[in-house]
Amino acid sequence: MTTIPAPAATQRPIRLFRNKAAKIAAIPMILTALVVFMGGTIWTVVFSFTKSRLLPKAQFIGLDQYERLWSSSKWGIAIENMVIYGLCSLVFSLIIGFVLAALLDQKIRFENTFRTIMLYPFALSFIVTGLVWQWILNPDFGIQKVVRATGWESFSFDPLNNQEIVIYGILIAGLWQGTGLIMCLMLAGLRGIDEDIWKASRVDGIPAWKTYLFIVIPMMRPVFVTTLVIIASGIVRLYDLVVAQTSGGPGIASEVPAKYVYDAMFLSQNLGQGFAGSTMMLLAVLIVLIPWAYMEFGGRKRG
């Protein structure tokens, strides 16, 4: 948006004012991009190196906040949970989503009904999801009690009150909410595969599972990449579900980074820790995002 003065002789309007209406209309976008997204991000990163507690204070103390962050057991558990949840949700979402999409793609009846049923949880909020699953997994009333009532007295399934497996209890709810979306994206990908591929593989007598594994899935690479980015950005954001289902408990066994940051900033008046934690979250996203952007950019240049 540099102003280059036009030669006076031609009487052309100044560059900045050309296309004026469009520029004025774009002001909200420009402000959001520069002030909130860029400005806010830079501000948080800068203040993660300060001594801020109750209020942001520009008193720099180097990497102290990060040292405290990584020596805190709460943050350690949060990261561990994010990794477990992330890996499991990545693997299970992709597998379940793809298998369901493949099943729906078999020219079946009631396809729309099945799809509607599998996708509806995605319309619900994480709060609703978390509360429903908290109720179903309730040891005194839920699945555990129902199974015990059938006569299997020693049956035990109480993930939400067991520190060791609480994150898997959250995973069950998360998968219930999110796999429908992945299924839909995969189904769109499968429908994008040329019918002739299937005809050719049938003529050659290749079994269906082999066609899927060695021909269709490699062809669906862009769909998988997009899905991967979507799942990954969801993993880092995991917050509401934990708050609703366990509030981080039992103890601190189901803490996640997003919750750590919120608690530090707004509950324990420890802004510096919040900034440091959120900067680490940003780093985690960039680790996924930059290779992806690079790959896509590189691909475009080649093509």
Binding site: A26, M29, V36, G40, T41, Y262, M265, S278, L289
Partner: peptide, 25 residues
């Protein structure tokens, strides 16, 4: 207009930044 794509790219990148980073600002 000139520069529009730059702002747009920042905006799209912004969609991926964890909300926690921008909460306090």
């Amino acid at each position: 207009f000139k520069g529009a794509d730059v702002f747009f790219t920042i905006l799209i990148f912004g969609a991926f930044i964890p909300y926690q980073v921008m909460l306090y600002p």
